[in-house]
């Protein structure tokens, strides 16, 4: 069962879809397995953090179908749109990195309220994965675990690629560069919004995102267990090596359950000749990791409950 709704976020009304969990082919409502009022069930929920700009649009169906996949496995899922994106209130040029991060925090709280789950993880794709990671690290979202699909590790490099795309669009449209990269960056310095792939973003957002460097920056080792999935058909390439290095330096030793995987799927967040509804290998590998986490946490939870009962 899916429930679309608007909820009050820190910066305005946010659109969301709650995927209520159910188990197996019997279609049983997993919520009915929850105990009586006052008892916190040992169940898990996930908030999906979507990609940026057109990548969000291209990857939408994969997100929708993975949410349905997880709900059928008994996991509560909340998908939502940040302020100024999708169906949510506001305009893109009013959003900042901070508003996105606090929106994630609000989404986590909303999921806890609706699903009565004990633990909420964050799953992000591309820049959404970067935001999920930052939200967890800055304690703006209470994340029990992280699933990072092809995260953007260097915000500056990513934005420069977007700007290059914008310059190419100018060439195609006007047969010349109307506004150079230097001019665009100059506008940003003056506080004007920047056009990134057709989306106006505030100069503040641009500056904040540009400063993100998860690889070389002084980010502490991540606490929660983390699955980092590199999505590509070939392992080689600078991006893959960066992700592997990031995992080894910042994630691997922080938690024994953390894992780095390479999944052979196409870049479904881009324009392809195939319309992606699902990413089967990515779904299975991610679910295998989440279910392992869930089993471990359930065991710990039940142990805690049993110990608590015995002490009374």
């Amino acid at each position: 069962m899916e429930e679309p709704f608007f909820f009050d976020g820190p910066s305005g009304r946010l659109f969301a879809v709650f995927h209520r969990p159910w188990r197996g082919n019997q279609g049983q409502d997993a919520n009915k397995e929850q105990g009586e009022a006052g008892f916190q069930p040992c169940s898990t929920g996930i908030v999906f953090c979507s990609a940026f700009a057109e990548e969000k649009l291209w990857s939408h169906r994969v997100f929708v179908n993975f949410a349905r996949f997880l709900a059928a496995k008994g996991i509560a899922v909340l998908r939502f749109d940040y302020m100024g994106t999708g169906d949510s209130e506001g305009d893109s040029e009013d959003a900042t990195l901070e508003t996105h991060l606090t929106d994630i925090g609000a989404a986590v709280e909303e999921l806890k309220k609706r699903a009565r789950v004990r633990a909420v993880g964050l799953l992000g794709l591309r820049f959404g994965a970067t935001l999920a990671l930052l939200a967890a690290q800055r304690h703006l979202a209470d994340a029990a675990f992280l699933v990072l699909w092809e995260p953007i590790l260097k915000g500056g490099e990513y934005l420069q690629r977007c700007l290059r795309s914008h310059l190419a669009t100018q060439m195609a449209a006007y047969k010349k560069i109307v506004k150079t990269r230097t001019q665009i960056l100059g506008d940003i310095e003056k506080g004007k919004p920047a056009n990134i792939d057709g989306y106006l973003i505030s100069s503040e957002f641009f500056r904040q995102a540009h400063c993100i460097d998860l690889l070389e920056g002084t980010m502490d080792r991540l606490g929660p267990p983390t699955l980092l999935a590199a999505i590509r058909t070939k392992k080689e390439g600078a991006d893959w090596k960066q992700m592997e290095r990031f995992f080894q330096e910042k994630i691997e030793e922080a938690h024994p359950r953390s894992q780095f995987v390479t999944v052979g799927e196409e870049a479904f967040w881009t324009e392809l000749k195939t319309h992606y509804e699902e990413a089967p290998e990515l779904f299975e590998r991610t679910w295998a990791w989440i279910s392992g986490y869930e089993r471990e946490e359930t065991r710990l939870c039940l142990n805690a409950v049993f110990t608590s009962d015995n002490s009374h």
Partner: peptide, 11 residues
């Protein structure tokens, strides 16, 4: 629902 069967060709 789905328009095609799984991941289908855009054309």
């Amino acid at each position: 629902g789905q328009l095609g069967n799984g991941n289908a060709g855009v054309l």
